[in-house]
Simulated assay, not measured.
Amino acid sequence: MAINRFMQQRRRVNTLPLVAPSVLVLLVWMIVPLAMTLWFSVQRYNLLNPTLTGFAGLDNYVYLLNDPALWRAMWNTLVLVGSVLAITVVFGTLLAVLFDQHFPGRWAARLLIIAPFFIMPTVGALIWKNMLMHPVNGIFAWITDLFGLPPVDWFANLPMLSVIIIVSWQWIPFALLILLTAIQSLDNEQKEAARIDGAGPVQMFFYIILPHLRRSISVVVMIETIFFLTIFAEIYVTTSGGPGLATTNLAFLIYIKALLQFDIGAGSAGGVIAIVLANIVAIFLMRTVARTMDS
């Protein structure tokens, strides 16, 4: 009776006053910047010409949609996101299978392979730019010199590939962590049964491990896509969006419009376009993940 009376009292407790402050802070934190972005996107607001003010309507959007830089930035964003996703998922899966095996020093190797994910993007990009990919003093230049080959100026001749390599290096450990955890949840009896039936390593990978990782791969793709749409630090530190617009993605184009050209209206309109595209991608990915979970 005492337990039932205690449970009834618990049900009468109103938890709204406890939850309301946190919910209110989150709403303000999300809605206020969004509302300001929407407001500035329909205003004439250029820091270089403070006298030019007033309601612009859809002029900022029309200006951006007619700007070839927007479409180049969207294409670069698609190439960057798609390439890094493919690299991180493929290498993350292969490394997860490798590090699931027993070998001497496995824990030290796991620690080292995961380390790049905990390095700040700016620091990682600086290391790649000045210590690895530098055409004169970089390690890659020293290696090519050993073979009598000319050094490669990565950020001038292969700028997009350079950014893809740097971002992939940072995010492969994330995919590895998620997929390694998923592999370790695989039932050992299922693997033993497959080995008894004569399945080799290749058959084990394609018919046992890979189907088991399907849900985890979907989650990795969803999370990484959301982050890759906003890649900025790696581009800012290494190429500054160049040469020309070769590595300018949508996030960096917004930075150029708002903080380099001081056109707050156009930059805000670009931000709204980025929000719309990110939500479309997020809805598609969440539905895909939901279908994968249901199946």
Rank of each mutant, 00 (worst) to 15 (best):
M1N: 04
N4M: 09
N4R: 12
Q8W: 03
Q8V: 04
Q9S: 09
V13M: 12
T15S: 05
L16N: 05
P17R: 11
L18I: 05
L18N: 08
P21G: 11
V23M: 11
W29L: 14
M30S: 09
P33I: 06
T37D: 03
L47Q: 13
L47D: 04
L48T: 13
N49K: 12
L52G: 00
T53L: 05
A56T: 09
G57K: 08
Y61Q: 07
L65C: 06
P68S: 10
A69G: 04
R72S: 10
A73R: 06
T77L: 06
L78Y: 02
S83E: 06
V90F: 09
F91Q: 05
L94M: 15
L98A: 15
F117A: 10
F118H: 06
P121C: 05
K129V: 01
M133W: 09
V136I: 13
N137G: 05
G138K: 06
T144V: 02
F147W: 12
P150I: 09
A156F: 05
N157D: 08
L158W: 07
P159R: 08
I164A: 03
I164R: 00
I164T: 01
I166M: 07
V167W: 03
W171E: 04
I172C: 03
P173C: 08
Q184A: 14
S185A: 13
L186A: 11
I196Y: 07
G198Q: 07
A199L: 07
G200C: 02
L210Q: 08
I223Q: 04
E224N: 14
E224G: 00
T225E: 07
A233C: 01
I235T: 06
Y236C: 00
S240R: 15
P243S: 06
G244D: 08
G244N: 11
N249Y: 04
D263N: 15
I264F: 01
A274G: 06
A278L: 12
N279M: 12
I280R: 00
F284A: 15
T288K: 04
V289L: 12
A290K: 10
S295D: 11
